[in-house]
């Protein structure tokens, strides 16, 4: 089973003159951590959107957990996404009026698979994850997410992506709002947790100093050579 396999993906935004994506082949093995780097605005986020099934991609081009994302219709893609993919964004990952713990548990409320894979006590699992990500203070877990620092918020987002052991985590520049020390620590923790959960990680960033945390590094511009 491949968490992610891309073959001959061509994508053009509706109305755009040129294709944004033209990827010959890219795949991740189970538990593999891939660092995808490239300058801003080159189409990395579009690729993540395509994998997550938010944009319409041609059938047969993207397979997540061996399932053709392009063949699913709208609502089914949303449900499929939460079943198999955890996502971390650059900033504002959390629902501000829910507590940190409730934010972590969100995938479990929308996905039966994630709930089942969170163990007997999902809240306990969520607390353990927060704990392992350095948010061991129990008062933090019950605080509204809006009261957490940016670094804490990103770690809560990581815990949310990890809960229920999805096949793949997509991380879109999750460290760009963090300082150097916090950055390294965050990537380190994320990599470790992914390894523990057996989750593949596709980490997108323009910051090549983080490269050494990963199994493999790919230059997005080289990968996207098929775009024309």
């Amino acid at each position: 089973m491949h968490p992610l396999r891309i073959e001959r993906l061509v994508y053009r935004w509706p109305g755009a003159a040129r294709s944004t994506l033209g990827i010959g082949a890219l795949s991740l093995a189970s538990g593999e951590r891939l660092f995808l780097h490239g300058p801003s605005g080159c189409g990395k986020s579009t690729l993540l959107s395509a994998i997550a099934g938010v944009v319409d991609v041609p059938t047969g081009a993207i397979l997540v957990a061996d399932k053709d994302v392009g063949a699913l219709n709208g609502g089914a893609r949303d449900r499929f996404r939460v079943d198999h993919i955890g996502m971390i964004f650059q900033v504002f990952n959390l629902i501000p009026w829910l507590s940190a713990l409730e934010n972590v548990l969100l995938p479990c409320t929308f996905s039966k698979r994630r709930l089942e894979r969170s163990g007997e006590d999902p809240a306990g699992t969520a607390r353990n994850l927060l704990d392992e990500l350095g948010l061991s203070d129990p008062s933090l877990a019950s605080k509204p997410a809006s009261e957490l620092s940016v670094g804490q918020q990103q770690r809560v987002a990581a815990a949310r992506a990890l809960i229920g052991k999805p096949d793949l985590i997509l991380a879109d520049e999750p460290t760009s709002a963090l300082d150097e020390v916090a950055k390294a620590a965050f990537v380190d923790l994320l990599a470790r947790e992914c390894a523990e959960a057996g989750t593949a990680l596709l980490f997108v960033s323009h910051d090549r100093s983080l490269e050494h945390h990963f199994d493999r590094s790919v230059d997005f511009l080289a990968l996207n050579g098929g775009a024309a």
């Binding site: 449900r79 990952n93 629902i95």
Partner: peptide, 15 residues
């Protein structure tokens, strides 16, 4: 809007 985007990322359909 951000809130809705997050909800979608964790599996909430537009419906």
């Amino acid at each position: 809007r951000r809130e809705f985007a997050i909800l979608r990322s964790v599996g909430a359909t537009p419906t």
